[in-house]
Write a protein that binds this DNA or RNA. Structure first.
Length: 427
RNA sequence: GUGGCUAUGGUGUAAUGGUAGCACAACACCCUGUGGAGGUGUUUGUACGGGUUCAAAUCCCGUUAGUCACCCCA
């Protein structure tokens, strides 16, 4: 192989034709579900001010500390390739005065995001997410709607064994109390924690709950639970969420260990993961929660909100695992074959007429042998082949060959479209 | 960011320090008036850079990438 060898840079990947069907399917299903629930689409720029994420996601989170793609521009701006969607959308909400729209504002998005992580299967530095945000509503029913729409998209994609995990991490009033209780407990049991958790205890104690280390989980067995520390408002909120969930056919469980890594969350947090035969396969496909204080963090007013995001590449991996069927490019039912230079010249305009009539037509103009062209038509599975030879070109006729019965008739060129439509109707 | 494993044509694989081979795919011709076949050919490779050796795909080091477990998260 020659010297200049280019390849995708770390963590980036090409989406090849064979995978496009998955991406299209996901976008199609997401769009349909979101449209039904009255979400409107929004696209925000890929580049944002670094501070947007530092302020919202949190300075001490891994996303900000080590996973941001930071760019220095010719000016002194510090820009980042967006690591997540919610902060951008809240920024847009404030910037464009969506506060004066009827509330809540329901938005959805789809696009690429970037995190500087070590790549692994289902985890890339550039990956796609889609998500929803319901901004301007405190009612717990929108929390459940958020869960429901994300669940519905995954379910409609044919994914099996989905499980929703929910929890409440309280609000600014009660979370500090819980945090204090938890830290106290952790200090007493310090020796039972892994070294990572001893660090976490100081910086972000709630994250200790998440640790997968078995020793830590044993230590946590009798740790105080966030639900016991919720203030009355938060308790009521969680109770309502669970009651609405009970009315749905969505499988869920309350998981007191569930916390989320981003600073802006409050009250309801949830994740949707895939499980196989009850076993947790570890794949978190979607996650989200309520973020009532995000607006204020970004300099806006008090605007309650709730949202969720799902990872496209992970969903695709899961679809492949489940062998979910997606339709690949449609077979051209009609195939056009030509013989001879005159016929070849007339081919393109005839093909255009068919295209304008909305008929998908396959061809192999690069091959002149009729045998080769029919061979390709066969391989594609086309039902009808239109054959234009020297003779037909001179008489303004064309042969219509039925590939299943091997019978063919000669028709006038001007009648092609009518003829083809008739044939397609018969199927 | 830490640790383990891996890397041979487009794809899947063989070659246990001694001739880089096979299958599929692709392309061409047989074949400019009729079907998925067949025949005959052709193209394409040891990820990159060093080292050991008479000799390296094979052993060693580095790099890159992939992958797995952490970390974290979608």
């Amino acid at each position: 192989m020659s010297k200049p060898k280019f390849q995708t840079v770390t963590g980036m990947h090409d989406i090849l034709p064979q995978d496009q069907a998955y991406y299209e399917k996901i976008q199609e299903v997401a769009k349909k579900v979101f449209a039904f629930y009255d979400f409107e689409k929004i696209d925000t720029p890929i580049l944002e001010d670094a501070n947007l994420f530092i302020k919202s996601v949190g300075e001490n989170t891994d996303i900000v500390e080590k996973e941001m793609f930071t760019l220095k521009t010719k000016g002194k701006d510090s820009l980042v390739l967006r690591p997540e969607g919610t902060a951008s959308i809240m920024r847009a909400y404030i910037e464009h005065g969506f506060l004066s729209l009827p509330q809540p504002v329901r938005l959805w998005y789809y696009g690429p995001f970037f995190r500087y992580e070590k790549p692994q299967a289902g985890r890339y530095r550039q990956f796609n997410q889609f998500g929803v945000e319901i901004i301007g509503e405190t009612d717990p029913i929108v929390d459940v709607q958020t869960i429901l729409v994300m669940y519905s998209v995954l379910n409609d994609l044919g994914l099996k064994g989905l499980m929703v995990k929910v929890n409440s991490i309280g609000d600014d009033n009660c979370r500090p109390l819980y945090r204090k209780a938890l830290v106290k407990y952790l200090r007493e049991k310090k020796t039972g924690l892994c070294s990572d958790c001893q660090k976490r205890m100081k910086v972000n104690p709630l994250r200790v709950l998440d640790c997968k280390n078995e020793k830590c989980q044993e230590t946590l067995a009798s740790a105080p639970q966030s639900v016991d520390y919720l203030c009355d408002d938060c308790k009521k909120h969680l109770k309502d969420v669970l009651e609405y969930l009970d009315e749905l056919k969505v499988p869920y469980c309350l998981d007191s260990r569930l916390v989320r890594g981003l600073d802006y969350y409050s009250r309801t947090v949830f994740e949707i993961e895939s499980t196989k035969a009850g076993e947790n396969t570890g794949g978190v496909l979607a996650g989200g929660g309520r973020y009532d204080s995000l607006s204020k963090m970004l300099g806006g007013g008090e605007t309650p909100a709730c949202g969720a995001a799902a990872g496209v590449e992970r969903i695709i991996a899961e679809m492949k695992e489940n062998k979910a069927r997606v339709s690949f490019s449609s077979v051209p039912e009609i195939f056009f074959a030509q013989i001879g230079p005159l016929a070849k010249k007339k081919s393109l305009p005839i093909l255009e007429d068919l295209r304008k009539a909305g008929i998908k037509v396959g061809e192999a103009f690069g091959k002149d042998a009729l045998k080769a062209q029919l061979g390709k038509a066969s391989r594609l599975g086309s039902k009808v082949v239109l054959i234009l030879g020297q003779r037909e070109a001179l008489n303004n006729m064309i042969l219509v060959r039925n590939m299943q019965t091997a019978k063919q008739v000669e028709v006038k060129q001007e009648d092609i479209i009518k003829e083809v439509k008739n044939i397609l109707k018969e199927k």
